[in-house]
Nucleic acid binder design. Structure first.
Length: 497
RNA sequence: GCACCGGUGGCGAAGUGGCUAACGCGCUGGUCUGCAAAACCAGUAUUCGCGGGUUCAAUUCCCGCCCGGUGCUCCA
């Protein structure tokens, strides 16, 4: 497949360099709060990448870090009067639950910063041996950017003017150059720290990713992913540290996911357009719709997240689910002759074309918009043929196969939405946040499947005695609670909106 | 300020130097239905931010302007 590489600024072939597994590192969360939809856009796009690679038969060795120590964590944990481990555990757990709700595959390896301190310390030592890392009088360690001439090659920034001591206010307690960044931070009094032969302290954020990436993937590996904001300084610093230490290329391919806007504005708490995944679930939006929206706009494009768009994707997902159910459950006519002729083979042809286009679009720099268009083309064509009585039992495998391949990447067809809404409501109740749930969501909570089935049965009886007023009243009542009914020849189907 | 990315129908968006400018949602009309829903059919941008230029031909390439976003600081 071909994928844009930030380092070379070109779309390039992506394949495992060892001919076996694609080794990739993706920057994970800092677990000091619940994840917001912007975070999840990045994780979802990385998920699309890894799912597509796997669909094509490429094995993936995917490492994701969890930053479970940093300034915010130390501060928040102290405020809460908790050890940092107790503070972060809850948010790390919540993060993985959110990934599950969004059907994001877990990486092969999850690397926690606090579990890999020795690797970081030893990497700093390697840099210190070359005088690239230096210690300041307060006991912190810094990286000497002047010693890495290629600094800026990823973000395309020119730092050629940077030399040792170039900054104006160098003083003996401070770093040698303003741009030099921290590798190891000395603790302030009472702060959580590790005692190591570098002195007491905690790792800088950048060294964490360098050390863990190389620990689990080797000095040189295939792909490094993250949000666009991480390009500078985080990823630039990772390159500087790693390549200075090993004198080998760090990651060959860099994958950066662009930010999303919310209602045309940057998402921020002050704008009032800041949403965690859980906020949206409490408002009754489905994880599948959120996933569909966040992956449907290609990763290099800014995506404008709107509630109107979210509602649209809810319908789009529903359409695909209805289609699959129709194909699977309808008793289709057997074909009259041996072998396929005419329209029968046209349907198989349409399914094959859809699969081809789907693969081609994703292989072309993960064009998810085109990929899904190919599937919708097939859905419309097949529905039309089926309405005209021109769909046969023999066509099922090809069409279902196309849907299956689509769903190995998009992962929206299996309906887990209601269980995650319920899960989120239970969480909100424990956290005292139930007031953030909309009345509709709360209403569905106390309506069990059995109660719904019973009401549907009442309605059926009313219809038989042609009491349409009563039947419609039941249907409307259920609709208000988010339950939609569909009458068909094969009986009544219902679903939660 | 410097650098980078984008501006396509009511909304989200794909795409291309020249074929009817994808796809999803919405809206209008129709088929079906007790009525709906689902599904299908038809319609829904003479036009791709604005102004110039290159070209036989530009939404697509170049220049300028306007608007939005991002980076230069913690941030997915």
């Amino acid at each position: 497949m071909r994928l844009y590489n930030t380092l070379t600024a070109r779309v390039e072939e992506l394949a495992p360099s060892d001919g076996r597994a694609l080794r990739m590192y993706a920057c994970g969360p800092t677990v000091y709060d619940y994840g917001h939809i912007g975070n999840f856009r990045t994780f979802l796009q990385v998920d699309v990448l890894r799912r597509f690679l796997r669909l094509r038969g490429t094995e993936v060795r995917h490492v994701m870090n969890v930053t479970d120590v940093d300034d915010k964590i130390i501060r928040n944990a102290a405020q809460a009067g908790l050890p940092i481990g107790d503070y972060t555990r809850k948010f790390e757990e919540a993060f993985f639950q959110d990934l599950d709700a969004l059907q994001v595959e877990h990486p092969e390896i999850v690397a926690r910063a606090t579990a890999n301190i020795p690797a970081m310390v030893s990497l700093i030592h390697r840099l210190a041996e070359q005088d690239i890392a230096y210690r300041t009088d307060d006991g912190s360690w810094y990286f000497r950017i002047a010693r890495f001439p290629e600094y800026g090659k990823l973000s395309k920034k020119d730092f050629t003017g940077i030399t040792d001591g170039a900054r104006v206010d160098v003083d003996e307690y401070e770093k040698d150059s303003a741009r030099d960044f921290a590798l190891w931070k000395a603790p302030r009094p009472g702060e959580h720290h590790w005692v190591t032969d570098l002195g007491p302290g905690r790792p800088g954020w950048h060294i964490e990713c360098s050390a863990m990436a190389m620990e689990f993937l080797g000095d040189s590996f295939d792909l490094h992913a993250g949000g666009e904001d991480l390009m500078f300084p985080h990823h630039e610093n990772e390159i500087a540290q790693s390549e200075s230490a090993t004198h080998r290329p760090f990651a060959r391919h860099w994958f950066h996911v662009r930010f999303l806007l919310v209602e045309n504005r940057k998402m921020s708490k002050s704008e009032g357009n800041f949403f965690t995944l859980r906020d949206l679930l409490l408002r009754g939006y489905k994880p599948s719709a959120i996933r569909m929206l966040l992956i449907s706009v290609p990763y290099r494009q800014q995506l404008n997240f709107t509630f109107e768009g979210l509602a649209a994707e809810t319908v789009a997902v529903e359409r695909l689910r209805t289609f699959r159910e129709r194909i699977e459950t309808t008793k289709w006519p057997q074909s009259s002759s041996h072998g396929m002729i005419g329209i029968e083979s046209e349907i198989d042809e349409a399914a094959r074309t859809a699969v081809e286009k789907f693969h081609a679009a994703l292989a072309n720099d993960l064009n998810t918009a085109e990929a899904r268009a190919a599937i919708f083309d097939m859905v419309r064509f097949v529905n039309a043929q089926a309405d005209a009585g021109k769909f046969f039992e023999a066509n099922k495998p090809a069409v279902l196969d196309a849907l299956c391949q689509f769903d190995r990447v998009f992962a929206v067809l299996d309906d887990h939405d209601a269980e995650w809404t319920r899960f989120t409501l239970d969480w909100a109740e424990r956290e005292g946040r139930l007031d953030q749930a909309t009345p509709e969501v709360l209403a569905t909570r106390d309506l069990s499947d059995e109660q719904i089935e019973a009401l549907i049965d009442d309605r059926k009886k009313a219809k038989l005695r042609r009491d349409f007023a009563r039947a419609d009243a039941i249907r409307n009542d259920l609709a208000v609670k988010g339950i939609l009914l569909e009458d068909s020849k094969d009986g009544v189907r219902w679903k939660r909106r």
